[in-house]
Simulated scan of single mutants.
Amino acid sequence: MTTSTTTPPEVTAAVRRKWFLREPSPESAARIFCLPYSGCGASMYRQWPRFLGEVEIVPIQPPGRENRLREDPYATYEELADDLVEVLRPHLNRPFAFFGHCGSALPGYETAVRLMERGYPAPARLFVSSQVAPHQGPAGRFLEMSDAELGEEVRELIVRLGGKPLPSLVEMSLGILRADVEANKRYRPAEPVRLASPITALGWSGDTEVDHRLMAGWADCGDTSFEVLEGAHYRFMDAPERLMDLLVAGMTSAR
């Protein structure tokens, strides 16, 4: 993986606000920044509580989705990470972590790499769910799907999130999903950067997308603990109690 040599961009307060559905609370003792699943926006975490004890859940809103629909999505995870670390800098003044599921686990990892490269505060933990290690991918059936096949997945996901799969909504979401899939295809680090931050790799017993037994490579990326939770690929959206407990325990032990 190549170290970024670009000058960090200046981020205004107005630009920074667009990355959050709500501003991180000054009352939180710790924060978990949650990146949205491929094709989705930050509102996908709406069933998650805002706080788990003193740990705040902070959904991230990348460009190109929901209230940022008019903006172009990122073409690569590296570009996303370059900007995200600068957006987050004022909010890294207490213990924090990243959570990402499937495709969004990878930009979470890449953002942790960027923080280390720039000498910024390191996450207390990286939570990666249902994704193979970066140097063992790309992986997953979405990578070879046609637009028609991805459209069917979008319809299922919209229903799963409690919405109606109207043609206009499906078309809009398909464009985001296709951009995310292409970014996943482009992400091919030859060797992993080993993080100083501990990693929790979360698999799911009924996941037909990414078998939890394929996640062992995360041990090459840092000190990694592995957990298998009950449920299928999208179970994490429901904020299952076991997942919430692991997030709190991971932050507590890291702190």
Rank of each mutant, 00 (worst) to 15 (best):
G217M: 01
E171C: 01
P63K: 09
I158F: 01
C102A: 13
A75H: 15
L246P: 05
E27H: 15
V11A: 06
S129N: 03
V170I: 01
V11M: 13
L84I: 04
A30V: 09
E54I: 00
P24E: 11
S129V: 09
A75K: 09
S129C: 04
G206Q: 13
S38V: 04
T208H: 12
Y109H: 11
W19N: 02
R68L: 02
F99T: 01
G64R: 06
A42I: 03
M244I: 14
A148N: 08
A232D: 15
R118I: 03
E86P: 06
A239G: 11
D180L: 05
P73Y: 05
R16A: 03
L35Q: 07
P189L: 02
L84S: 12
N67P: 02
L143P: 02
E149C: 13
F96R: 04
D238W: 01
M1V: 08
Y234Q: 06
T3S: 12
R17N: 10
E86Y: 03
A30P: 10
M1D: 11
G163D: 15
A105K: 01
L202G: 11
L229N: 13
R114W: 09
L84R: 02
A42R: 09
L35G: 04
T12S: 15
Y109R: 12
A216V: 05
L243F: 10
R46L: 03
F236L: 06
R178N: 10
D238S: 15
E152K: 10
Y45N: 04
V15D: 15
V248P: 10
V193N: 09
M244T: 14
M237G: 02
V128R: 00
E152G: 10
N93G: 06
A219V: 07
H91Q: 09
E209D: 07
G217N: 03
P8N: 14
P9T: 10
P8Y: 14
T76Q: 11
S104Y: 13
F51N: 14
T111G: 05
G163W: 11
M172P: 01
M44N: 02
S168A: 13
R235N: 02
F142G: 00
R17Q: 12
G206K: 14
L80T: 06
R94I: 06
L177R: 04
W19K: 07
M215G: 03
A124P: 09
I57P: 04
F127P: 00
E27I: 11
V15E: 15
F127Y: 06
I158H: 06
R68W: 09
T7E: 15
Y74M: 01
A183I: 03
W48D: 07
P36H: 07
P123Q: 07
M172Y: 11
G39E: 05
L214P: 00
P73G: 13
S129L: 13
L92D: 05
M44K: 05
V181L: 07
D83I: 00
T3D: 11
L84V: 00
F20E: 09
V248G: 00
D245Y: 14
L126K: 11
N184V: 14
